[in-house]
Design a protein around this nucleic acid. Structure first.
Lengths: 338, 338
DNA sequence: AAAAACAACGCAAACGTTTGATTAATTTTG
DNA sequence: CAAAATTAATCAAACGTTTGCGTTGTTTTT
């Protein structure tokens, strides 16, 4: 009893007109009579006609689909971002397909290929941790598939991207700690492959030097963002000749690992920690960061999607201008301490 | 300079053979010579040929796409689940498209329609809070689109589903509290439209009665799962003639609202709270539930996806047997208290 | 040596929709 | 009233791939 979906052809046959007329009728094409148009629409509705999207996509060479590649959907930041992407896409009648790179470069390369095969109309990408080569995105260029990077973006400007000004945010964060009287501030930074790491570093430097203090590079440690990596960094700080009294953590996960470790050593009260917001309930922690950089994932997702849709709809001319959108990050002070 | 993707036709023309031969060559069809097959494959590779998926989908009437409809992607449980779904789907070369009902029935109905239009090969659904009518899924039946429900499932058995035995889990939870000496245990339950609410209620009853205690229905309160709803329920418990000493919260969000409220009143220490796991770091809370029901979202997502793919690949016969898969939930005791 | 079997390929239709070109019917215009 | 313009509809091709069937030419079987 499997009923096949109604087609334009069937409607045409019943009404004794041509399929093209039906198509035009359904699309309010000017060269169709009002009477037949109404008859077509009425019958279509009563037969529960649904356009066969596969056929349309095939015919038009467009898929009305945007692809999203991100490192890890279970990370709160990305789940919020893709939630925004879907909300925004559905408004414009686009469908979202997504895939996770699981922070692996090779997987990312494969997924870009896959998305290309799927003929997505555009691609939204947050690059993986260990992506330093960006050739796989070049291909998309020649196929005229626009790409907008968000949050985790490549370290150059000649691409479209939406990201936070983490530099500015970091300046705010470090300045806040300086105002609180801290004179030795450690930073557990991410890997150097990430542009986000550069920004944090630059912000740190800028905050220090513009307060006429001397910048000590050994107070910035790189970290692979794992728990062990965080512990290693923390240990180095504990043995540092200028043992920091405050630490800027790369993100809430690092902050969490750090807090866990410092709690275990029972020295958590000797430190003020500032982090970058990833987790929704970090503020409810026993010992939580005293301030957090809010990166507005929903807003980033929204903006990236709108830019992408804009590029999709814009004429095929090579853009020489790139969207380099910066979403302001804010420092959220977490007054209530546990 | 926008290069169009290579097609089978072009390959055929270059090799002076027919498109059908090229197609067969690429698919290792038996009735094609080994020599030409290799020539075809070689040329295809060198021309960077990628099959036009839209065309194939159209031709075959299959999309190799599964749709996922869930209430809210930013909820941790669902972000984990869909992460599993995608991981599982990509293994079998399926693509995932998803959409959020935002817990609204009307939206869910629309999305089911949309998914049907998209001609998904199958659908994975976690139903919205206020869905009590399930007609919109009936349509899919006649179109032979299998549906597997997961986690939030309809209150009847003649559908495919994967869910937790929340009844069993609740028995475990309440029994645990009874063993700890609690004699008045409150439950902040969800809305009655959810099957999950029934299960919790049944589990509660079962635990109480099988311990030869009398069941007091007024100790189970329904809640709309909002912060205010939680507070309302909490207030009722505080004014209850048998004021509970332990509370079973519908989920971590409710627990969070509850803890916040009880902390504000500074009576948090008078209560033991048990919850159902939604949030990754609930254990790090200042005051956290003493135990948590783990529902294994990743596992549920995996199983649901595999069942769906199974149904997709199984012959079109009407199944009279339904997959009713129960994933065991575990009670995780949270020994370390803040 | 004739008949049968097989291997390797081509032909053409099909999937559902859109769209430029065309025709037929009607109305307007000088 | 014939010619031109307008309206309303049809025709046919196209999008890329797959697949049942038919057609060769070659090899094996009797």
């Amino acid at each position: 009893m499997q009923s096949k979906p109604t087609t334009i052809k069937e409607i045409a046959k019943i009404l004794n007109i041509s399929p093209s007329s039906v198509s035009r009728g359904l699309h309010d094409h000017p060269s169709i009579g009002a009477v037949t148009r109404d008859k077509i629409k009425q019958l279509a509705k009563s037969l529960n006609y649904e356009p066969n999207k596969a056929a349309i996509l095939f015919q038009k060479g467009k898929t009305y689909t945007i692809g999203v590649i991100l490192p890890e959907l279970s990370e709160h930041f990305f789940s919020i971002a893709i939630s925004a992407i879907e909300d925004e896409a559905i408004k414009k009648n686009y469908t979202v397909i997504f895939a996770q790179s699981h922070d692996r470069y090779e997987q990312e390369v494969k997924l870009v290929e896959k998305m290309k095969n799927q003929r997505v109309d555009g691609l939204l990408v947050s690059i993986s941790k260990d992506t330093s080569n960006f050739d796989h995105f070049e291909t998309l260029n020649s196929f005229n598939i626009p790409v907008v990077f968000f949050d985790r973006i490549p370290p150059f400007k000649n691409v479209h991207y939406v990201a936070c000004s983490l530099e500015t945010a970091t300046v705010k964060a470090v300045t806040y700690l300086l105002r609180k009287g801290h004179r030795s501030i450690g930073m557990i930074n991410g890997p150097n492959t990430l542009y986000a790491s550069d920004e944090r570093k630059d912000g740190y430097k800028l905050a220090i030097t513009s307060n006429r203090l001397k910048f000590d590079p050994s107070l910035i440690l790189n970290c692979d963002l794992t728990e062990q990596g965080t512990i290693d960094a923390a240990e180095k700080f504990l043995n540092h000749k200028r043992k920091p009294t405050a630490i800027v953590a790369f993100n809430d996960y690092v902050a969490l690992f750090l807090i866990k470790y410092l709690k275990k050593l029972d020295i958590i009260h000797n430190f003020d920690i500032v982090s970058y917001a990833n987790l929704p309930i970090i503020g409810y922690l026993d010992h939580s960061p005293i301030a957090s950089v809010e990166q507005y994932p929903y807003l980033q997702g929204q903006k990236a999607t709108n830019i992408l849709l804009d590029l999709i709809h814009s004429p095929n001319v090579k853009h020489q201008a790139y969207y380099n959108t910066i979403v302001d990050a804010d420092l959220i002070i977490n007054d209530v301490r546990g």
